[in-house]
């Protein structure tokens, strides 16, 4: 069991989107087609309220590995969302000359 049982249908996304940090999530976003991003995002979006309710019921310190994976899928969805919803492009328009790297971030331990 890789995810809490009621979210086991999302396991197909773990290979690509269970990533440890912002930099790897952003790299995966840039490495994906819009079709792939839209599919992942829309499926996650439909489940997001349920996932939030489920995870909110537990303290971070009580998270099992399955719950940490589910949380990381949501964090990936948070990085993909702006590409699908706002920019309609994996790459932010007119950002070709810029680059960015996260040095410290808040992640579940």
């Amino acid at each position: 069991m890789n995810l809490p049982e009621q979210f086991s249908d999302l396991e197909i996304y773990l290979d690509k989107w269970d990533l440890p940090d912002f930099n790897s999530r952003y790299a995966a976003r840039l490495d994906s087609s819009m079709e792939e991003l839209t599919n992942f995002y829309s499926v996650m979006l439909a489940r997001a309220d349920d996932i939030k309710s489920y995870l909110d019921a537990k303290a971070f310190s009580d998270y099992q590995d399955t719950e940490k994976r589910l949380a990381r899928l949501m964090f990936a969805m948070g990085v993909v969302g702006p590409a699908v919803d706002i920019f309609r492009s994996a790459v932010v328009p007119d950002s070709g000359a810029s680059n960015f790297e996260m040095v410290l971030d808040i992640e579940l331990s």
Binding site: F22, Y26, P82, V92, F100, D105
Partner: peptide, 21 residues
């Protein structure tokens, strides 16, 4: 936490536009 992290991402996407310009 999801709100903090997603907000950071939206801010950074916009910063990338500033930087590129």
């Amino acid at each position: 936490l999801f709100s903090q992290k997603t907000g950071t991402g939206i801010v950074l996407d916009n910063v990338l536009q500033d930087l590129g310009t």
